[in-house]
Design a protein around this nucleic acid. Sequence first.
DNA 1: TTTCTCCGGTGAAACGTTACAATACCGTGT
DNA 2: ACACGGTATTGTAACGTTTCACCGGAGAAA
Lengths: 367, 367
Amino acid sequence: MLYKEFDLRYGAGLESTGNTMVTIRDVAEKSGFSVTTVSMVLSDGLAAKRISGRTRTHIWKVAKRLGYRPNLFARSLRSQRSHTVGVIVFDITDAYCTQILRGIENHLRPAGYFPLTTDLQNDRSQFQRCVDLLLGRRVEAMIAIANPAFLNIGLLAEFARRSVPAVVIGHELQRGPVSSIVVDNQSGTRQVLQHLYELGHRTVAFIKGPKSLIDSQQRWQGVESFAHDVSLNINPDLVVEIKGRNSTYVEGCELTEELLQHRPTFTALVAFDDLTACAAIRTLSKAGRRVPKDCSVVGFDDVPGSAFYNPPLTTVQQQLEMQGSLAAEIVEELIRAAVEKRTVMSKHRKVSPQLIVRDSTCPAPDS
Amino acid sequence: MLYKEFDLRYGAGLESTGNTMVTIRDVAEKSGFSVTTVSMVLSDGLAAKRISGRTRTHIWKVAKRLGYRPNLFARSLRSQRSHTVGVIVFDITDAYCTQILRGIENHLRPAGYFPLTTDLQNDRSQFQRCVDLLLGRRVEAMIAIANPAFLNIGLLAEFARRSVPAVVIGHELQRGPVSSIVVDNQSGTRQVLQHLYELGHRTVAFIKGPKSLIDSQQRWQGVESFAHDVSLNINPDLVVEIKGRNSTYVEGCELTEELLQHRPTFTALVAFDDLTACAAIRTLSKAGRRVPKDCSVVGFDDVPGSAFYNPPLTTVQQQLEMQGSLAAEIVEELIRAAVEKRTVMSKHRKVSPQLIVRDSTCPAPDS
DNA sequence: TTTCTCCGGTGAAACGTTACAATACCGTGT
DNA sequence: ACACGGTATTGTAACGTTTCACCGGAGAAA
């Protein structure tokens, strides 16, 4: 049920009711109708249809004049509906999270739900706190934007136990009560390699992601599968891997330098993500190898800033906003099911990423 | 492995109370004490001190065993305190906002307040909606992170009228009931120019920000005041201004090209902000002028990514997190004043930014 | 006429908590 | 024996809303 938004402007002609909040009772008294009638009119649901048009407009007018705002606490307490959805992000300052957030909000708002966002601040141990917070505020469902390293699946079970629908973004979950949304990493790296292949690159270097991330494996599988399909040879000497000891950027620089020692000379480099790609470009530039003329570089993620990099980065866009709105859509459906006391299976979606070609790639030098 | 964890937690030994939420009354019955006693113990305030230690631990144990969670709606309804603070950001996907948000949350949490964030999505007309939302949820105070272009001061008055304390970040407000926090732009650009001056640069080009922004004027004043102090001559031919027609990045590229036409040849360029600086660096690189060897470039803002740019950008950091926590501090104080029925003046703070020297600046070529 | 049904509306009881005033209990001094 | 003062605990009434069962009256059907 969607509560009509109260569009009450203040200023001219607002009746002062002293320093206390105006309640539905005030509206009832001033309008001469009962509290029940006023409630039915102002909550604007199906019940309002039972009240005559004249009464309705009159009550609305009085409410507006008094500057009435429904007390959501009372409303939620009585109706046992909070009309809120909890969101747990692993780092609010990470653009990955906020773009998804945008998608979530844009889908949730027209559906009449308000997102309550809590921030893990990259600290896995905060998960319990976030869960407590959201559960305490009686969210009707919850969405976790969860870097796998910070996701605590165990704690998610608490939502299931209380039959609060939950959706996880960014972590594959094939069974169990929690729904999930993931990006098709394989498809992404396949597109990357195909792009380079079509530009004539045959000697390609790779910086793989850390083994601990499932994404690393999936992205590498995409590379291998495409290479196999077109019989492209991958030289093991030109494959290095992020260990995750230092900062990713620093390690990206070191690994690129390592690659530069090797022969044969590669004409393209596929980085695990955009940050690594930036590190690679920076290192190549410093070593006198121009990007893309001497060496093409591709990233993954399309972080904001990739478009403004020097040179603008060819990369893979993850459709984050869509992932968010997909999650919201699932959540909305699950809530509806719960309200109507239908049982429903958890849902699982995989979204296809998209290659964005910018200036960090060009035809191979010798082709 | 993840699922094992999952299953373990699933039957974590909580006493099942059927499908309904466990209330304070359940805890009272199971523990043998009255609802009042349980409430006093569980709300853990001063009142709890009046209850004997044995009773307290017993009640806590029972509550924990039953998995009791206080219903915040009931609590807030009764106590007339929401313990929430509204936050309006102009764009949640903008790192400027999220860094401030981080500061706000970190200060608010230990104080026992929860931030309710609403997103303007760069659309000024959404301001009323956000205000309604927050007022409807009875926030006890509010903080607006407001790009001046999207701030609607008039609507903020609504908070004042309802005696809800309000703080604005990023817009100077010397009088009136609304508090404010701003960055000292002048100090920032003074530091920039001093840095370049000390590196021996005497012919410096400038890309000024759009006239419509107060920041542009303040930053320019900083430049002029330092130039005056050291008798540095600013060549008007080397000063261009963003008009704000196109995207800032594109316009930055165009303006840089324009500057490149002019003589004398400048050895350093001061950009209005980091995005403009990136555009400038990109354009200079393309024109064959190496940064920083041939020309130093400085930005403003220290957006994330500046550290990873090619080359890493020398820029001015705005202490965003501190601005956020400063705002939260003010808000907390104002709420306390309101609760204790003290009247208190609005507060205004100015924070000093800090120059971050990276690789986009170096000594002038001829010095 | 009586009975039925629908329309427009109402009164009272929740929802889960805290605030306030009141009470039982107990040891102590007179 | 009594009043006293303090400590530990309790009963009841809110908080502002929605929900549920119900009601008076008017017109239709019998």
